[in-house]
Simulated assay, not measured.
Amino acid sequence: MAFLFPEHPMSPATATTDAETEAMIRGSIDEISHIATLPEVTLKIIELVDNPDSTAQDLNKIISHDPALGARILKVVNSAFYGLPGQIGSINRAIVLLGLNAVKNIAIAASLTKLFRGGKICDGFDARELWSHCIATATACRLLAERAKLGKGDEAFLAGLIHDIGIMVEIQARRTDFVEAVNHAVASEGTFRASEIAVLGATHEQFGAALCKTWKFPETFQNVAGFHHEPRLLPEGARALAVLVHIADHLTKTLELGFTLDVEGELDPALVAELNLTQADLDEIATGLPEAIAEAQGVFSGG
């Protein structure tokens, strides 16, 4: 069964912001547009797949203009990550087997690796740790989606991969303030999100939702970026993917996988139950998570 989400009338980028804050967020997004963004070919893929008249041939034609991206997509498709029978030698064949939307999600995931490159910028933050956390969360999302029989593991994986993309906005557009927020959160008894608001004027969720909107990501991904810490702020029928990421986020923190300073409090069992999961399910997934993460890192890191 696929994820089905109705239109959410409230934009996650503006649901909890005033005009001044929204303008600040918009300025930060504009600032990074010339620093780092998704490759143009990936943005074209997103636009194409969102067009209901697009065909597999249209998608294949776009990807063929970027051999490096095509090679990365085939690397993913032919990995144990997908477990397809036989070796897939062409993008067109991959599209036929997986569908346009799945290939789009793989293209985005493959393109994101370059945006997360970097190193330690202060004692409390290392970009490599953020990437490790995002890969771990994405892998957990995929396993949780399979266990909950939600379908579309590629969509769940990408949701986990992009959930903290707002932190990259903060680093690129407001690095000094971001460092101050991290240092404040580490030194105080307050939360990272409270420090973000005090220093930056907004949280990484707000920055992330705005960036996803700029990149024309589906509203479901805007909601994940904007509400993964508080999925109950979304309507019940529109929050399954955000709840999935929220659970995965807590699972990776429990296992101390990468940067998790922003993950607050304890996981509410009621949210786990919303996806028809149990604590036993989480325990079993946690046991197999390190091996699955190693596979995902081998597929999505580098290149």
Rank of each mutant, 00 (worst) to 15 (best):
P6V: 08
P6D: 12
E7H: 13
H8S: 14
P9F: 02
P9Q: 10
P12Y: 02
E20M: 12
E22H: 14
E22C: 12
I25A: 05
D30R: 11
I32L: 15
I35W: 02
T37G: 14
T37I: 10
L38H: 01
P39F: 00
V41H: 08
L43G: 02
I46S: 03
L48D: 05
V49W: 09
N51E: 10
L59F: 06
L59N: 08
L59C: 07
A68P: 00
L69S: 06
A71P: 02
R72T: 10
V76M: 06
A80I: 00
L84K: 10
P85A: 13
G86E: 06
G86F: 01
I91R: 05
I91L: 03
N92E: 15
R93N: 14
L98E: 01
N105M: 11
A109P: 03
S111H: 00
S111F: 00
L112F: 00
T113E: 15
L115V: 08
F116V: 01
R117W: 04
R117T: 05
R117Q: 13
A127M: 14
C134D: 15
I135G: 04
T139R: 07
T139S: 11
A140Q: 12
C141W: 02
E146N: 13
L150M: 12
G153K: 03
I162M: 03
V169S: 06
Q172L: 15
Q172I: 09
R174L: 11
D177G: 15
D177S: 14
V179R: 15
V179Q: 14
V182Q: 07
V182C: 05
H184Q: 15
A185D: 05
V186T: 13
A187K: 13
G190P: 07
G190R: 01
T191S: 14
R193H: 04
S195F: 05
E196N: 08
A198S: 10
T203K: 09
H204W: 07
F217N: 01
E219G: 07
A225W: 06
G226V: 04
P231K: 11
P231S: 09
R232K: 14
L233W: 10
E236C: 11
A238M: 06
R239C: 04
V245N: 04
I247S: 03
I247N: 03
A248E: 02
D249Q: 12
L251I: 06
L251P: 06
K253M: 13
L255P: 00
L255R: 09
E256D: 06
E256M: 13
G265D: 09
G265R: 13
D268T: 05
P269Q: 07
A270R: 15
L271D: 12
E274Q: 07
L275D: 02
N276Q: 10
T278S: 11
Q279L: 15
Q279V: 12
D281I: 03
L282M: 01
D283P: 00
E284R: 12
G288R: 12
G288P: 07
L289E: 04
P290E: 11
V299M: 08
F300W: 09
